[in-house]
Design a protein around this nucleic acid. Structure first.
Length: 418
RNA sequence: GUGGCUGUAGCUCAGUUGGUUAGAGCGUCAGGUUGUGGCCCUGAAGGCCGGGGGUUCGAGACCCCUCAGUCACCCCA
């Protein structure tokens, strides 16, 4: 085969598209009820935005970005995530000047050049929200509720919901010092990767999956023990509000997440159906990002979640709760005269909001019936020379097999009745 | 970037220690019904056995290289 799809990308074929529509419809529905409005930003941005926004030390920026020079020698990058783009747009369009709190959501493709595996593609899709402007724990909790509601209403169960606080620029440095002190004591037991991270981002050593690292850091100090007078009550309040909502969660003191901009709250929703890449979505607060990108200090919180991963979990549900719908009417014309007579009728019925189709291959009645069945047609209209001469059409109800004859002139009325 | 596994029909997969013409199920198409779907029966079409090289009288199978997929590491959605 000469042409192949690029590594790490997937076609969504017509036979699967209803699953995507189902997810997308539910996401937009929930977002709307929570009063988040969609924002659409370009698929690419100037490379510096992501370097500054996500952090030079992160894996995303360090080794996963699709970066290229355009014909004007500008360095552009296919977006690896949305938060930096959204904040750029928020600042650039002065959204904060028009109202103090902006709640936005997005849904679209992201790009990271990594080795694909289960639940990880080079072009993948995320939905997410950003609530820009509120420093309060209630806002953290609302974003959590958005994602949990989407999952809940799509029928997902048995998810695990983990939260942590990663502190702020006041308390994190103090903690980081303590942590490095501890890590130095057990340095020789750490993996190479973790040793390399000692200088750049020691916090992430804690959520390493390497068994040796996990064992070695078992007694490491945790951020939650070092939270400052601002972060500690905030974290406590998030927990209290979650309990008020009856939301089950676990505190995971080692949850850090790989994006540099998080402050205070960090959270992740996981599923066991996902294999090794078990995060369905995650998010947190990023109170410093806006000013880092040249805007005014603006406390914000948001999450991002993967659609491909959501799809994997949905497909693992015992009874596929993804609705499929068939045609309302399939038109069977035996001969071109009959086709000429039926197409205007079909058009009129399509204009009355029914889903219809007709055979375009001039095949046998039997073949056309099979086609009707394949499309799960509720009714079939059959017209051949006999009917044509009588000015009539046969309407067959597929489920019961019952057939009636009606004048062709009354087809529209007959089929759209009820 | 590193490692494991897998590449045979549209899909899912068999294929014996290397041996004649490469199979099955599903799907597709047709017939069984002069103009009636699903279920059933019958038949047909559909394969450079991922690609290249090598060993051999003989390779889908063995060896080497290569490409692709997949899973895992790292990290994340």
């Amino acid at each position: 085969m000469k042409y192949k799809i690029p590594t790490g990308t997937k076609d969504v074929l017509p036979s699967d598209i209803h699953k995507w529509h189902h997810m997308e419809d539910k996401i937009r529905d929930v977002m709307t009820r929570f009063n988040y409005r969609e924002i659409r930003t370009p698929i690419f941005e100037y490379t510096d935005l992501f370097k500054r926004g996500i952090g030079e030390a992160t894996d995303v920026v360090g080794k996963e970005m699709y970066t290229f020079l355009d014909k004007g020698d500008e360095s552009l990058t296919l977006r690896p995530e949305m938060t930096a783009s959204v904040i750029r747009s928020y600042i650039e369009n002065h959204l904060g000047e028009q109202q103090p709190l902006n709640k936005v959501y997005y849904l679209g493709p992201m790009f990271r050049q990594e080795r694909p595996q289960k639940g990880r593609l080079r072009q993948f899709h995320q939905f997410g929200v950003e609530a820009i402007g509120s420093p309060h724990a209630a806002q953290d909790v609302e974003t959590m509720l958005v994602s949990l509601t989407v999952y809940e209403e799509l029928g997902l169960r048995n998810l695990s919901f983990k939260i942590n606080s990663v502190g702020c620029r006041d308390c994190r440095p103090r903690y980081r010092e303590e942590l490095v002190k501890f890590l130095n004591g057990i340095k020789d037991r750490l993996s190479e990767e973790s040793k390399n991270r000692m200088a750049s981002n020691p916090l992430r050593i804690l959520d390493s999956k390497n068994k040796g690292d996990v064992e070695a850091t078992k007694n490491a100090p945790l951020m939650k023990e070092f939270l400052c007078d601002s972060c500690a009550p905030h974290f406590a309040e998030v927990q209290k509000k979650l309990k008020d909502h009856g939301i089950e969660f676990q505190i995971d003191g080692r949850l850090v997440r790989g994006l540099d901009y998080y402050t205070k709250t960090a959270y992740e929703i996981q599923s066991d159906d996902l294999g090794s890449q078990n995060a369905l979505g995650g998010g947190g607060r990023y109170d410093l990002l806006c000013e880092d990108l040249g805007g005014k200090p603006t406390p914000s919180v948001g999450f991002a979640a993967g659609l491909e991963r959501l799809l994997i979990v949905m497909e693992s549900l015992p009874d596929s709760s993804i609705p499929v719908s068939g045609l309302d009417v399939y038109f069977i014309a035996l001969g071109l005269r009959a086709q000429d007579a039926l197409m205007p009728q079909m058009h009129a019925i399509r204009r009355r909001n029914l889903r219809c189709d007709i055979d375009f291959l001039q095949r046998s009645l039997k073949a056309q019936m099979r086609e009707a069945n394949r499309h799960q047609a509720k009714k079939v209209v059959i017209v051949g020379d006999q009917e044509l001469d009588a000015g009539e059409a046969v309407i067959k109800t597929m489920e019961t097999g019952e057939q009636i004859s009606v004048p062709i002139a009354q087809l529209v009325e007959e089929l759209t009745r009820r």
